[in-house]
């Protein structure tokens, strides 16, 4: 009897591809939520492995807060052109214009929370029954308990008490009309796994992940990119620093870290020795201890 065990990146990759193909096989109108961050870029690569030379059995969906890093948008558009796949954009600005959400006021105003409404509207409009996302269980303790196939009710709500048992590699995607499933193929990956995979696969990333010179201000101990949508006042001192972004969300809620990591090898070294968790640079998680849990219950991914 021959014996064998896959290397961890091969195993994680195979698991994610299996999950993506289950989505294709089980749902009628799936979508892949693409944020322009490294996790969703990794998902796109995995989808190529799962379905090429065929087309993706789902469009890419970007919920655009309008406060993105320009580098992210440029990357997105080039990537979509290269892939020849369909991109659907849901604009938070439209939700604001329609009066469905109200823009936050004050210094730390962010559209991050508003995007949930745009996401739910986009899901409803296109009648998506499954939305694939790049969330990982190592990020945060609410995510640590979420299923790979996570059923949401018609309001997009996650109910931790009503989760389905998920056994072996068998995923139950049966839902009632109006419900949808959030699917997380890289649930079992860590931040370092994602980076090691990006290096192994030689995947291009938006330039802001790498160290660069940028005007920043310091707020609540965090370095924020100086941008027009940041409500700045005289207390905010703009400095030119060498920084990079460890996670890429909306400009108003994603902090930079001082870094000299110009190449992917430097980034992997930096993360391997880092003593701060990835979401430590996310203002949206600092609101309260249960911030992510509360947002998930409200329909966030």
């Amino acid at each position: 009897m021959s014996k064998h065990q896959l290397d961890y990146l091969d195993e994680l990759e195979a698991e994610a591809i299996h999950i993506l193909r289950e989505v294709a096989g089980q749902f009628e109108r799936p979508a892949l939520l693409f944020s322009g961050g490294k996790d969703s870029i990794t998902l796109v690569r995995l989808a190529e492995k799962a379905f090429r030379p065929g087309k993706f059995p789902f469009p890419l969906v970007h919920i655009d807060t309008g406060h993105n890093f320009p580098e992210t948008i440029q990357y997105r558009d080039e990537m979509v052109a290269r892939l020849g796949e369909k991109l659907i954009i849901g604009h938070v600005q439209d939700s604001i214009d329609q009066g469905k959400v109200v823009e936050q006021k004050g210094k730390n105003a962010s559209r991050n929370a508003l995007q949930t409404v745009t996401l739910l509207d986009t899901i409803a409009h296109y009648e998506f029954d499954a939305c694939i996302g790049g969330a990982r269980r190592d990020e945060e303790k609410a995510r640590a308990k979420e299923r790979i196939f996570s059923v949401r009710d018609e309001f997009g709500q996650w109910d931790p008490k009503r989760q389905r048992p998920e056994l072996w590699n068998i995923y139950n995607g049966k839902i009632h009309k109006g419900e949808n499933v959030r699917v997380f193929p890289i649930s079992n990956w860590t931040e370092l796994d994602v980076w090691n995979y990006i290096r192994r696969e030689n995947i291009a990333l938006p330039s802001i992940y790498f160290a660069h010179q940028r005007d920043v201000i310091t707020r609540n101990g965090q370095l924020m990119a100086a941008a027009d949508f940041l409500n700045m006042d005289e207390e905010d001192v703009i400095e030119r620093r060498t920084v990079r972004f460890r996670t890429v969300g909306d400009m108003t809620c994603t902090a930079a870290v001082a870094s000299e990591a110009f190449e992917i090898d430097d980034i992997i070294d930096e993360i391997s020795t880092s003593k701060i968790s990835e979401r430590g640079a996310r203002m949206d998680d600092k609101v309260s201890e249960a911030a992510m849990e509360d947002r998930k219950k409200g329909g966030y991914f």
Binding site: A144, K145, Q163
Partner: peptide
């Protein structure tokens, strides 16, 4: 307590 939590 709500079922399984995964740690890495």
């Amino acid at each position: 307590t709500i079922d399984v939590a995964y740690k890495y």
